[in-house]
Simulated scan of single mutants.
Amino acid sequence: MTANVLFAGRPDAWPAYEPLLRAEFARLGVPANLRNEFAPEEVDYIIFAPNGPVSDFTPFTRLKAVLSLWAGVEKITPNASLTVPLTRMVDSGLEQGMTEWVAGHSLRYHLGMDTHILDQNGRWEPKAPPLAKDRNVTVLGLGALGTASAQALAALGFQVSGWSRTQKEIEGVSCFAGADGLKEALAKAEIVILLLPDTPATENTLNAETLAMLPRGAKIINPGRGPLIDDGALLAALDSGQVGHATLDVFRIEPLPPEHPYWAHPNVTVTPHIASETRESTAAEVIAENIRRAEAGEPLLHLVDRSLGY
């Protein structure tokens, strides 16, 4: 039986995704009728992004699953009209892009590159940084992106700790969990990387209390989600020197408003939500494989637990 698959991502993404998805369906032998327009009652699967045309799933009466093109699903899970299984995007391109961005900014902090690139002022200070083995880095969030980033940093020789809500075991990474584990993970963290999902339980993970747990002068890197940080608490910690610098890629409001104090703060680097993004070629592989699995009665990959929000 041929499955009807609706592409409901951003309309201008359709020309890029269409040939890739068709090629993957053919490669996997999945009989699929792929379109960007269908009568709702005819649709079996929706390839979805929150910035696409679908927000109400009620008319899709024979829908089997919704397959998100985004890694974050916080904008989808509250939708009461969505009652079928939901998957999120976890693909090799997304992981590789995030790993490269995290490693680059971690090395930037570790090597003190800003001093030489941004703050020359005629000073000659031949002071080499420590080796990576003497630098403590903590990754908050050990899902697919956090694990990949932690493993990459460990491979570079850093002393890497990781924290998650549930206990994980990752080779080369000291893993912590729970409230006591968070305190221990932050206690030696010279660089902190946030890769947690955005849920009510993770909002303001870095706040006045947890920022005070860090060694003085610690650096913050947030490519995860804006609400993970209490902005007022971070600005206060930057002003006091408790936090030495913050590189922020995600924000509660995007684009970041021009009047936001992050823009003008001398110890904040703002990047415009570019740490990583879904790559069409690798995303098409994941989507097609999940539809193959669903049609074959096999478990879906990257299934979202909506009670947890990820």
Rank of each mutant, 00 (worst) to 15 (best):
P15F: 02
F25P: 08
Q120I: 11
L6I: 10
K64E: 12
L214H: 01
N222E: 11
A237G: 09
K127D: 08
H116E: 10
P19K: 14
V84C: 10
F60Y: 15
V173W: 01
L214Q: 01
G104M: 10
I117E: 12
N36F: 09
A185R: 01
S240M: 14
Y45E: 00
D91M: 09
S240A: 15
D134I: 07
E190P: 08
T282L: 13
I170R: 00
F25T: 04
H110G: 11
Q120W: 12
S276H: 10
A13F: 11
P129M: 05
W14Q: 14
A288C: 05
E169R: 05
P223I: 13
L228D: 07
N4G: 08
P129R: 05
L82P: 00
F57G: 13
R165N: 09
P59K: 11
P50L: 05
L211Y: 03
I220G: 04
V73H: 08
I46D: 01
P223Y: 09
E95G: 11
P129D: 04
C175Y: 00
R279C: 09
V268Y: 04
A275E: 02
P197R: 00
L196K: 02
R306C: 02
E100A: 14
S307M: 02
L34W: 07
R252K: 14
A8D: 04
N290L: 02
D305I: 01
P266T: 01
G72H: 00
M98G: 03
L214P: 04
G112Q: 04
D239H: 13
I221F: 13
G241D: 09
F158T: 00
Q159W: 06
H260P: 07
V268C: 05
A284V: 09
I170C: 03
R165S: 11
L156F: 07
D198G: 09
H105C: 08
F158V: 04
V66D: 04
C175K: 04
L28Y: 00
E190T: 07
R279S: 09
E74W: 00
D56K: 15
V30H: 00
S149A: 15
E289L: 13
S164D: 13
H110S: 12
L238T: 03
E37R: 15
E285Y: 10
P50Q: 05
A155T: 08
G141Q: 05
R108K: 15
A296S: 15
L235D: 09
Y45S: 03
N222S: 15
N33W: 09
G226H: 05
